[in-house]
Every structure is written in C-alpha cells, then in structure tokens.
Amino acid sequence: MTVDLAHYLAVSGIIFGIGVAIALSKRNVVAVLMGIELMLNASNLAFLAFSRFSGAFQDGTEPLAGHTFVVFVLTVAAAEAAVALAMAVLIYRRRETVDLDRISVLRW
C-alpha cells in the first residue's frame, strides 16, 4: 500500500471541490471567503505534492519552486482575505447585511 501523487492530488481535488461548493453555495460573504481559502489550500497541497513527487523537473529547475509558489499563495491569500473582509465590512455598513442573495441591486 503506497501513497503517491495521485492520492495527494485526489485529496487536493476533493478539498478544492468542497471549497468551490462552499464558495458557490453559501450566502454569507464570510463563508464564501472560507470556501475560497479552501480552494487556495487545495492548490497549495497540489503544489507541494507535485514538488515532492513529480519527476518532470529538468536540470536546473528546483523542485522546491513549488514551495516558493506556496509562500506567495499564502501571502496573496492573506492580503486578499484582508481586503475581502474590509469589503464585507463596507457592504455591511451600507446594507446591514452580508447576505449575497440580497446584494443584488445591480442586476439585469
């Protein structure tokens, strides 16, 4: 019984799918952002799994580039979360709601 790339990717995919599902189907902005964080996490897992297992790295390329990538994803995720939550607070001030179903003045 071995655990290889496919397994990690499968877990990553499932997490990604759950993240997508949450992002697409929760009406609270905060919950949606949680889904997005899950998606990012899933890709982090994929990056790391590829880094660990992939045999495609040619000479001169560093498998740990995946790790570096993840660092940036982490950074961006944090920044994005910050701005997103600020935006959520902003819309809350205007509408007293963060329910995405009700944030639909702009339509059609």
């Binding site: 992002a23 697409l24 949606v32 995405l100 944030i103 639909s104 702009l106 339509r107 059609w108």
Partner: peptide
C-alpha cells in the same frame, strides 16, 4: 440573456465554474 445576470454574485461564479 440579461435575466442570466441575476445580480446574484454566485450565479456568476457558478457560470464560471
């Protein structure tokens, strides 16, 4: 077609997906 633009954000993300 314009009714597809329901104003609900998740309709848009769903479309993308």
């Amino acid at each position: 077609a314009r009714r597809l633009e329901t104003g609900h954000l998740q309709a848009y993300t769903s479309m993308s997906m």
